[in-house]
Amino acid sequence: MGEFFNAILNFINYAVSIAPRLFEGLKMTASMTVCSLILGIVVGLISCFFSISKVKILNKLSGAYLSIIRGTPLMVQAMFIYFGITGALGFRISSFSASIIVLMLNAGAYLSEIFRSGIKAINKGQMEAARSLGLPHGVAMRKVILPQAFRIVIPSVTNQFIITLKDTSILSVIGVAELMRQSNQIVSGNFRGFETYAVVAVWYYVLVVILTKLFKLLERRLAN
């Protein structure tokens, strides 16, 4: 029993000792997640409006975008943007910028379908009633349909937020100094993989729990 408690104490001491380096990675992970989700929401809304538009070319553009993003792995997209496109065009961008672009495009594709399903869930009579009151289509969509759709899709948006947060760990392959890359560098220096990755797993889990609680709080406030 004494050995067990000593092992726990050693693990806690080790977790505390690597916390400063992991915190640096955490700040990068949080920045990537928030920036890419904000931009992803914009991209997702644009793609959503294209997909429900009566203009066929816009439908096809949205369909092609969704097909490409959803049909290729995130890691391949990251390598293609960071190494492929920049190499072919003869310029360089930072790994952070490339990561934001990749996560934005990825989140936008899935959010597009989430928003579309939310809009489709609203009774068509809502739009007809708004138009009968003299509201233009765009105003009716912004003032009547979207607020209701947003409340419906909050759980799905929460899931996408969590997925994007966890996807940041994949982007360590292009050199972003986020949480996973910091842990890899720690392990390469001390070879304590079990303890290090266990600590990182706890950090990710705590982040996911906090985000879930925050979105549930938002959902309750909007419901009231």
Rank of each mutant, 00 (worst) to 15 (best):
M104Y: 14
P147M: 11
K213G: 05
F5G: 07
G87D: 11
K166W: 09
L9F: 03
F49L: 12
Y110H: 10
V34C: 03
F96R: 08
A98M: 12
I38G: 00
F5W: 12
F80K: 13
I210N: 00
I154W: 01
Y204K: 03
V76C: 11
K124R: 10
F50M: 10
G87W: 10
I152R: 00
L146I: 06
D167T: 14
I93R: 05
S99R: 08
N10E: 10
Q160S: 08
V200M: 08
R151F: 01
K143M: 14
S169M: 10
K166N: 12
V153Q: 00
V176L: 14
F191P: 00
V187R: 01
G63P: 11
I122P: 01
F83Q: 05
N190H: 03
Y65F: 13
K27E: 03
G40M: 13
G44N: 12
A30R: 06
V157P: 01
S36Y: 08
I100N: 15
M180I: 05
L37S: 13
N159H: 04
Y197G: 09
S183H: 02
C48R: 05
M104T: 15
L171H: 09
F215V: 03
R220C: 00
P136C: 14
A201R: 04
A177I: 08
A98Q: 05
E178Y: 09
G71Q: 12
I100D: 14
A177K: 04
M32C: 10
A64K: 10
G87K: 11
P73Y: 14
N190F: 06
L37P: 10
L103T: 15
V76Y: 11
I57W: 00
F11I: 07
K56E: 08
I122F: 01
Q185G: 03
F194T: 11
E178M: 10
A198G: 11
Y82A: 04
R192D: 07
A30S: 04
F161E: 03
M32L: 15
F161Y: 06
L214A: 03
A121E: 00
A15G: 08
G138H: 07
G63Q: 10
F194A: 13
S31M: 06
V199M: 09
N10Q: 04
L103M: 15
I41R: 12
V208I: 04
F4R: 11
S169D: 14
R116Q: 05
I170E: 06
S51Q: 09
W203M: 08
M1D: 13
I85D: 09
K213I: 00
I12A: 07
M28K: 01
R131H: 09
A198E: 05
S112C: 13
I114M: 08
M28N: 08
I85H: 10
F23A: 05
Q126L: 05
K60Y: 13
I69D: 14
A15E: 07
I122T: 02
C35P: 02
T168E: 13
V176D: 08
F191T: 02
E24T: 05
F115N: 04
L37T: 13
V55G: 02
E195A: 12
F194M: 11
R192M: 09
A107K: 12
T164N: 15
A19K: 08
P73H: 15
M75T: 12
N224Y: 06
A78I: 15
G44S: 12
I12F: 07
V43K: 14
I152Q: 00
F215H: 01
G84L: 11
R116D: 02
S188E: 07
I162W: 10
Q77V: 15
F50Y: 06
S62Q: 07
L26G: 03
